[in-house]
Computed example of a mutant assay.
Amino acid sequence: MNLHDDLLDVRAVAFDVDGTLAGGDHRVSPRTLRALADLRAAGVEPIIVTGRILGAATAILADAGIDGYAVASNGAVAVDTRDSDPLHTAFMDPDEAQSVVAFCEGRAVEPSLFTVDTMVVEEGSVIHGLLVAADPTAATRAVPPGELPYAESTKAVIFGEPGTLDALDAEVRAVFPRMVRSMDTAFEMSAAGADKWAALSAVLERLGIPPERCAGIGDGENDVVWLSRVGFPVAMGNAREPVRVLARLQIGHHGDEAVAELVEALLEARSAR
Results as ranks from 00 to 15, higher is better:
E171S: 09
L130I: 14
I209S: 05
T137G: 14
V143A: 08
V121P: 05
F159G: 11
D169H: 15
E212G: 09
G106C: 11
V132T: 14
F159I: 09
A76V: 03
R107G: 06
A142G: 03
H128T: 13
F103V: 07
V175T: 15
A108L: 13
V126P: 11
P136G: 11
I127L: 13
S201R: 12
P177G: 09
D184L: 12
A90L: 06
V100I: 15
E212P: 03
V77R: 01
A97F: 00
A139E: 14
A167H: 09
E212S: 11
I127W: 05
E152Y: 01
E110G: 07
T164L: 13
R107D: 07
A78T: 05
G160I: 02
A97C: 04
E122T: 10
V157A: 14
S201E: 15
A133S: 14
P162F: 10
Y150S: 04
Y150Q: 07
F114V: 06
S182D: 12
L148S: 04
R82M: 11
F114P: 04
V180Y: 05
E161D: 15
I158K: 04
S84L: 10
A174P: 05
D135S: 11
F159S: 15
Y69K: 09
Y150E: 10
L131W: 03
F91N: 03
H88M: 08
V71K: 00
P211E: 05
A174W: 09
L131M: 15
P149N: 12
L148N: 07
A138V: 06
G160P: 01
S73V: 10
A167G: 00
K196N: 05
P162C: 10
R173T: 00
E161S: 14
R206M: 00
L130F: 12
Y69F: 15
M92S: 00
V116F: 03
M189V: 04
Q98L: 12
L165V: 04
A134L: 01
V71W: 00
A138S: 15
